[in-house]
Design a protein around this nucleic acid. Sequence first.
DNA 1: TGAAATTAGTTTCAAATGAAACTATCGTTG
DNA 2: CAACGATAGTTTCATTTGAAACTAATTTCA
Lengths: 144, 144
Amino acid sequence: MPDPDVIDLPNFLPYRLAVATDAVSGRLARRYREEFDLSIPEWRVMAVLARFPEISANEVAERSAMDKVQVSRAVAQLLRSGHLDRRADAADRRRTMLSLSPSGQEIYRRIVPMARAYEQDLFARLSDREADILMQALVRLSQP
Amino acid sequence: MPDPDVIDLPNFLPYRLAVATDAVSGRLARRYREEFDLSIPEWRVMAVLARFPEISANEVAERSAMDKVQVSRAVAQLLRSGHLDRRADAADRRRTMLSLSPSGQEIYRRIVPMARAYEQDLFARLSDREADILMQALVRLSQP
DNA sequence: TGAAATTAGTTTCAAATGAAACTATCGTTG
DNA sequence: CAACGATAGTTTCATTTGAAACTAATTTCA
């Protein structure tokens, strides 16, 4: 019977969640880095732009759970490595419209199977029902 | 029906996990900081020492999913703020035995109800069965 | 209209983090 | 027992990250 005055870290939800994310993100980050020389923020930007081409940096931020500073830095790096194209918005010259360059599309095309396979590897540890409940629980925990 | 060539970030498990952890840890970190002026690594060290008094820094690292550098830095800070006591191990003078100081115990005693209440707040978003499945799923995802 | 407030995005500076090197002590074995 | 390797913990240095300040363009509204 657990002592109510002492917290058992391995059973403490925020800790367990952080440990799981460290493990899952860590392995994935290593693959992005080794196989594609991308950081996770860079990958997120590419993933958003693959799904929503020609959007602004701010819209990328909204769709990737990153702030505008993170996006700005990831975009700068992706421009350096040639995976992104950027053009000024004629209607509002503060905004810049972003999209994957041909090289970015090519890399993205190669990332997708790896990312899917990795995700499948994770889901293989769970039954379908457990996976559903997990995904839904994570959404609930994300709410403010 | 989902496009197999495009990944939908909000439904991608590693992303959803990272977003949930950011939310959960972020809110908690803010409270530790505001109410107790502690970082999460410092809190982890204290939580481990409350449960396992008089252990070495290495043992703290093993029990807190941190590496020895993180533990060393957190311990240094906790010594500065007076929440930890440290004494050399007579048998092995490389090791130092750590424990919560009276002030550390006092802080810990005040943290526990806050941390439990916060965790309860999270679990309140889930049914008991969902919570069980979530906790178990997180353990499975943490495995190498 | 035009000054003030807002928005998009970047840069700066300080603090946090990670990897590798380092110090000190201990254990092992020739 | 002396040299060598292993272990506990710290420090250094480079990179990453976060918060705030900044620039440039746009919108608001007196």
